[in-house]
C-alpha cells in the first residue's frame, strides 16, 4: 500500500472519528448483547439466579417443545399470507399512483398515511374494526346481508384477520415500488407500443421484469419483518385464542420476561436468527433465477 498523503490521512482519521458513535453503538447495543445472548443460550438462567452451563440442552429442548413448533407454524402461516398479500397490494397501489391523474400528491399522501399511525394506535383501531358486535367490519357485512365473522376471537380466523390487518401498513413498500416504477426506462414501453403491445403486454414484458430487483428487495425485507411479528399478539390477542396467534417473538417474550427463562429465550432468539438467515440465503440463491438486473455484468 502506498503511503497516504497528508490529506488522505486526515480524511481517514476524521472519517473514523465520525463513525465512532455508530461503531460504539453497534458494539454496545447490538454485537455485545448478541454475544451475551448466545452465551446465555447455553445456560439455564432465570433472572436473579446464577446461570449454570447446560451446553446445547436449551436447543435440544426446543425440539420437544410443542409451543415452539406451534409458534413457528403460526408465524410461518402469517408470513406466507402477509408477505405476498402486502407485496401485491403495495405493487398495485404503486401502479395506480404512477398514473398521470389529477391530485396525485394528495392520493399518494392518503395511501401513505396509515403507515404513519403509531403501531399501538393502529392495533387499537383494528381491535375496534374486528369487534364482532359493533365493529366496522361486521357492520358492513351485515348491511350487505353477508354473514359476520368472529375475526381475531376465533381460532381459525385469527391469523387470517391479522394478515388482512397487516396489509394496511403497506405505505413504505409502496413508496419503494413507486420509486422503482419511475426508474423503468420509458423507451422500453415505447418499444412495446411500437410493436403493437397493449397495457397487459407492457406490464408483463417491461414493468414486471424491470421491477424484479425491487420486488426481491421488498420480499426479503418483508419476510424478515413479518417473522418478527409481535405487536398484534402482544396487544390484541395475547397469543390466543387457544394459541392460534402465538407468534414466535411473542412466545420468546413470554419466556424471557413473564417466565424469566432467559437461557431458553436466548436459545429461541438464536434459532429465529438462524431461520431468518437461512431463509434470506435461500431467497438470494433463488433470486438468480428470476431477478433481472439491467447492469448484471457490473454487479
Amino acid at each position: 500500500m502506498p503511503p497516504l498523503s497528508g490529506q488522505r490521512r486526515m480524511e481517514r482519521r476524521w472519517g473514523l472519528l465520525m463513525a465512532v458513535p455508530a461503531i460504539i453503538g453497534f458494539a454496545v447495543f447490538t454485537a455485545g448483547p448478541m454475544i451475551a445472548s448466545f452465551l446465555f443460550s447455553l445456560t439455564d438462567w432465570q433472572i436473579g439466579g446464577t446461570p449454570s452451563f447446560v451446553g446445547l440442552d436449551n436447543y435440544t429442548a426446543l425440539a420437544g417443545d410443542g409451543l415452539f413448533w406451534k409458534s413457528l407454524t403460526a408465524t410461518t402461516y402469517y408470513t406466507l399470507g402477509a408477505v405476498p398479500l402486502g407485496l401485491i397490494i403495495a405493487f398495485g397501489v404503486a401502479m395506480l399512483l404512477d398514473q398521470k391523474v389529477r391530485g396525485l400528491p394528495v392520493w399518494r399522501t392518503i395511501f401513505y398515511l396509515p403507515t404513519l399511525v403509531p403501531a399501538i394506535a393502529n392495533v387499537v383501531l383494528w381491535i375496534w374494526i374486528f369487534n364482532p358486535d359493533f365493529g366496522l367490519l361486521n357492520s358492513v357485512l351485515r348491511q350487505a346481508g353477508l354473514p359476520a365473522g368472529q375475526w381475531i376471537y376465533d381460532e381459525s380466523s385469527a391469523v387470517p384477520s391479522l394478515i388482512v390487518m397487516s396489509t394496511w401498513g403497506f405505505g413504505n413498500t409502496m413508496v419503494i415500488f413507486l420509486a422503482g416504477l419511475q426508474g423503468v426506462p420509458r423507451h422500453l414501453y415505447e418499444a412495446v407500443s411500437i410493436d403493437g403491445g397493449g397495457p397487459l403486454r407492457r406490464f408483463w414484458h417491461v414493468t414486471l421484469p424491470m421491477m424484479t430487483p425491487t420486488i426481491f428487495y421488498n420480499l426479503v425485507v418483508g419476510v424478515v419483518g413479518t417473522f418478527q411479528v409481535f405487536n398484534q399478539a402482544y396487544v390484541m390477542t395475547e397469543g390466543g385464542p387457544n394459541q392460534a396467534t402465538l407468534f414466535y417473538v411473542y412466545y420468546l417474550f413470554r419466556k424471557a420476561f413473564i417466565e424469566s427463562e432467559m437461557g431458553y429465550a436466548s436459545a429461541l432468539a438464536w434459532v429465529l436468527f438462524m431461520i431468518i438467515m437461512v431463509l434470506t440465503f435461500m431467497m438470494f440463491r433463488n433470486a438468480r433465477r428470476w431477478v433481472y438486473y439491467e447492469m448484471a455484468g457490473a454487479r
Partner: peptide
C-alpha cells in the same frame, strides 16, 4: 357475551 363481544381494547 361470548369472546370479544364486550371487548373494547384487546382483551
Amino acid at each position: 357475551p361470548g369472546p370479544g363481544q364486550l371487548a373494547a381494547t384487546g382483551d
